[in-house]
Amino acid sequence: MATSVAPLLCCYAWTKTLLEQLAISTLNGVIYGMLLFMLASGLTLIFGMMGVLNLAHAAMYMLGAYLGYQISKTLGFLPALILAPLALGIGGALLERYGLRRVHQHGHVSELLFTFGIAFMIQEAVQMIWGRIGVPYRIPSALDFPLFRLFSTPYPAYRIFVLLLAIAIFFGLFAALSRTRIGLIIRAALTHPGMVSMLGHDVPRVFMLVFGAGAGLAGLAGVIGGPIFVTSPSMAGALGAILFTVVVIGGLGSLPGALLASLLVGLVQTFAVVIDVSLDDVFKIAGFTAASTGVFSDIRHTTVAQIAPILPYLMLLVMLVVRPRGLFGSRDV
């Protein structure tokens, strides 16, 4: 390749590769982050407002993917994009109204167990209806083409569609919360639910609305995430843990916090994968050359890339120690 031609050419090629890596990693990280945000936004609102960690949130995401698959098979992708989140939203609202609200009187542990049970029910129901090995949910053919080339890499249109949709959702949510009357009440109920209730607002109804909207958003994330990821019963488990870290890092109940934390987690994970540097390499640069065996050799040889997928959990730990309320949270976890 260029290495044998001239040093200058080599460096040009090297810089170009580096730039390409940088651009693609940023884009990948942002898209993954925005998808996380779509899920985390609903979760953080529910968590912040009702004090309930909705353990069924990831399961609703999975159900959204399956419903999306089923509807798009018969009616097409666009109806799926609207109908599946709607179905989940209504389901979520009913779940809050006739399930969670009754359990609410018995305290947070009961609520937690309730959502835990719901998660199991959804999981089992999905396996019973669609089987245990997953379904062939594919990117709709209208969006299945490379939109542009980033240097030498073709970039799929569908991912850009996901990005745009997620951005639209963020602005929509933000506007609804900051510009509308109901948004005002929701924001008030986030911090002072008792006082809002005293002022004569129907706080339980607001809760129902928020729970429904959160479920709907999870469903929407499922519909658009299903074709990118593998639509199978295990898809909930993988994402569920990451979601909770995002919500805690961002701060409970904070929409901007959820956005920032989602992007942070997405970008950190994406960039860490590219860094093949271990502690040993750092030692070498610093002038130490330690023996390559010994008790700590495994730790020393572990590269940043190897631990990339668990970095969000590390961030969670650091955040809990340094700033328990999260980036934009108004109260401690």
Partner: peptide
């Protein structure tokens, strides 16, 4: 020569970019 944590990765796009590079 990549080693990833077992069943922890949710997004594989960065790995694909790395392999391509």
């Amino acid at each position: 020569d990549e080693l990833i944590p077992l069943q922890k990765v949710t997004d594989f796009t960065p790995y694909i970019a790395k392999i391509r590079a």
